[in-house]
Design a protein around this nucleic acid. Structure first.
Lengths: 231, 231
DNA sequence: GCAAAAGTGTTCGGGCTACACCCATGA
DNA sequence: TCATGGGTGTAGCCCGAACACTTTTGC
C-alpha cells in the first residue's frame, strides 16, 4: 500500500464542529442527536471522519454540511483532543473546529430537516464524550476573536443600531456593558458609517442605523491598526 | 476488530515537537536530521506516531525523549496540520506541540548523542515538509505565552539580574527594550524578591540578584491578577 | 403626561512612553 | 581616570472606568 510508514500505527481521526449562532437576541449552540453507537441518541457536536484525499479543514466543512445543511461557514481550528479513552467506542483523535454565525443567514428549515437544534448557551444539555470541554474552549476562543476582530458586524443585519451591536457583545460575553463607553469605543475606531435612517422597531424614539465599512477597516489595518473591544 | 467505526477511514496521525531553548544569550530551535524517507537527511522537527494506547500529549513526550533524550518538558499543543499533501510520502495529519526550555537544564551530551542540534532562531535551515510553518506559529505562541505568563523566570538561573531578565525578553521578541520601563514594569508586579547579593560576572559594579516568588504569584493570581509584559 | 429606549460628556486615575544622568568598580 | 555596565525618576498622554440627565415619541 505504502512505501514509507508503518501500517500498525494508523489511527481513527475525527473532526468535530462547535457552531455558535446569534439570532439577534442570544447566543446559541448547534447540536444534533448522535445517530450511531456508542452514545447513540445523545446530544452531540457535528462530527465525522476525514477521507484520505481530504484536508481536515475540508473534512470539517463537509461533515458540517452533511449533518446540518450549513455551508460556507468559516471554520477555525480549535484544538486536537487525543486522550486514549475520550471515545469509549474506540481510540479516536478528534480535531475540533469552531465558528460563530448569524443564524438567519442560513436555511433554518434545512437545519431542522437534519434534526439539528439551536440551544441557548445558558442551557446546554449533557453532551456525548468530551464535547462539553470542546464547547467551553470554543466559547473562550470565540470571545477572544470577537474582542480582537470585527466579527460582530457580520452577525447583525447590514444596517444595525448601536443598541443592537451592544446586545450582541453582551450576549457573547454574558455581561452588561456601559452604553456610553461602548458607543464611544466603537465609534472611535471609525469603522462605521452613520446613516440618516432610524430603526423604530424597538423604541418610539428610534435608533440611528450604522453600517460597517470594510474599506475603512482594510485601510486602517494597513496602517497598523488593531481592532479591539474591551469587555 | 472494532464494533463501531468504519475501517477504511483510518489515517496516519503524527506528532511533531517544536522546542525552543534559551542558553542565557539567544533563543534557539532544536532540530534533528530526519532518519527516514521521505526527506531522509533533511533538517526536521522531532516527530513520530502515537501508539494506540497512548494519548497524543504522551506521544509527543515520548517522541521527544526518543529523539533527543529530553524529558519532563512541558509541551503545549500548538495546531493540527492536515493538508492532504503536506507529507509527500503519504497522507499524514500532524499535531504539533511546542515548548520553551532552559537549555542548560537538560543533558547536552544526551542531546548531542541523539544527533539533535540547537540552531539560533535567526539562522534556521530549510526544514522538511511544512515544519517551517509550524516553527513560525510556535514562535508566535511562545511569544504570547511569555507575555502573559511568567515563564521567563524559569529560563534563567534561580537567582538572576534585571539585565539578564531583560536580555531574555529581548531574545524572545527580537527587540530592544528600554531598561527603565522594563524594570519598572517587572518590579511593579511584585513577583520578585530582591536579594542582597550582586552578580559581578558581567560588570564591575555588579547587578543585584532577584528571585521569583511563586507564592506571591499564586496569591496575586487568586486575587484576579494577570501577568503581563508589554513588548 | 408618562413610559421606554436613545443619546450624549466629563472627570479621574493608571499605565505606558520617551527620555538622560549619576554610580560603582576594575583595569 | 576612564570605560563599562547598573541603576534610577519625571512629565505627558492616552485610554478605560465610572457615572446621570435629557430627548423623542407612541400610547
Amino acid at each position: 500500500m505504502n512505501p514509507y510508514y508503518p501500517l500498525e500505527d494508523r489511527q481513527l481521526l475525527a473532526v468535530d464542529c462547535v457552531i455558535f449562532g446569534f439570532d439577534n437576541q442570544e447566543l446559541k449552540l448547534l447540536l444534533i442527536k448522535r445517530n450511531m453507537e456508542p452514545g447513540k441518541g445523545m446530544w452531540s457536536l457535528m462530527g465525522g471522519f476525514p477521507k484520505h484525499d481530504e484536508g481536515i479543514d475540508q473534512a470539517a466543512e463537509r461533515v458540517l454540511k452533511q449533518l446540518t445543511g450549513l455551508q460556507n461557514v468559516y471554520l477555525e481550528q480549535l484544538f486536537a483532543y487525543g486522550e486514549v479513552d475520550r471515545d469509549p467506542g474506540e481510540r479516536v483523535v478528534s480535531v475540533a473546529y469552531c465558528s460563530l454565525i448569524k443564524i438567519e443567514d442560513y436555511d433554518k428549515d434545512l437545519v431542522k430537516e437534519h434534526n439539528a437544534h439551536w440551544r441557548p448557551i445558558g442551557d446546554i444539555p449533557d453532551l456525548v464524550f468530551d464535547h462539553r470541554i470542546m464547547v467551553e474552549k470554543a466559547l473562550k476562543r470565540i470571545r477572544r476573536r470577537a474582542r480582537i476582530q470585527p466579527i460582530g458586524f457580520e452577525l447583525l443585519p447590514e444596517k444595525f443600531t448601536m443598541p443592537q451591536l451592544q446586545s450582541l457583545y453582551e450576549a457573547i460575553y454574558q455581561k452588561e456593558l456601559d452604553k456610553r463607553n461602548f458607543c464611544k469605543k466603537i465609534l472611535s475606531m471609525k469603522l462605521l458609517d452613520k446613516l440618516d435612517e432610524k430603526d423604530k422597531s424597538s423604541s418610539k424614539k428610534g435608533a440611528f442605523l450604522y453600517q460597517f465599512n470594510p474599506e475603512k477597516y482594510q485601510e486602517l489595518l494597513s496602517k497598523g491598526f488593531y481592532f479591539s473591544v474591551e469587555v
